[in-house]
């Protein structure tokens, strides 16, 4: 835990564990990686210890294209954590990767009133701290 008082509107960041480290390390070098099962070939996100489709522990990390479509979104208003409340209204998106799995992400350079279901997106990488680069998306084209 870093030192943080309630008055410091700091952005909550991911705890990086042995399981999730490959994801966050790849993000630092602007790569999006997710797990794929060596047995049944299914991709999955978020990271797990085994394949959630067939139970096989034989899973590995694969770089994916970063192309996605907009699956859903919300725009959050107060009450929120201080960091987000200071910047509200705050949009959060769910995207569907070209490879199938979906993830929660941030979105850049796209006003909320232009969001459309199925809109083409491409991954971006936003360095937040020494060890955390968040995966963001922006409209593709």
């Amino acid at each position: 835990m870093t030192e943080q008082t309630e008055m410091t509107p700091q952005r909550p960041l991911p705890e990086i564990t042995p399981l999730t480290e490959p994801f966050w390390r790849a993000a630092q070098s602007k790569k999006l990686v997710i797990q794929r099962c060596a047995k049944c070939d299914e991709y999955q996100f978020p990271p797990e210890l085994a394949c959630t489709h067939c139970g096989s522990p034989d899973i590995d990390w694969h770089e994916v294209s970063g192309r996605a479509t907009l699956y859903s979104w919300t725009v959050a208003h107060p009450p929120m954590l201080p960091y987000f409340q200071e910047r509200s209204p705050w949009p959060v998106v769910a995207v569907e990767l070209e490879e199938g799995p979906r993830m929660i992400a941030g979105i850049v350079e796209t006003p909320v009133d232009e969001y459309e279901f199925g809109m083409s997106l491409v991954a971006e990488f936003e360095k937040i701290s020494e060890d955390v680069t968040l995966v963001m998306f922006r409209r593709d084209g």
């Binding site: 909550p12 960041l13 991911p14």
Partner: peptide, 30 residues
């Protein structure tokens, strides 16, 4: 919520999807 988020929340909360209402708003919109 702490400075570092454990578990699956690590892939959601840093993006601002923090409370139940925000989480279910996303599902509701879909």
């Amino acid at each position: 919520t702490g400075a570092r988020v454990p578990g699956i929340g690590a892939f959601e909360i840093p993006y601002g999807l923090v409370g139940p209402v925000q989480q279910l708003a996303l599902v509701t919109r879909r």
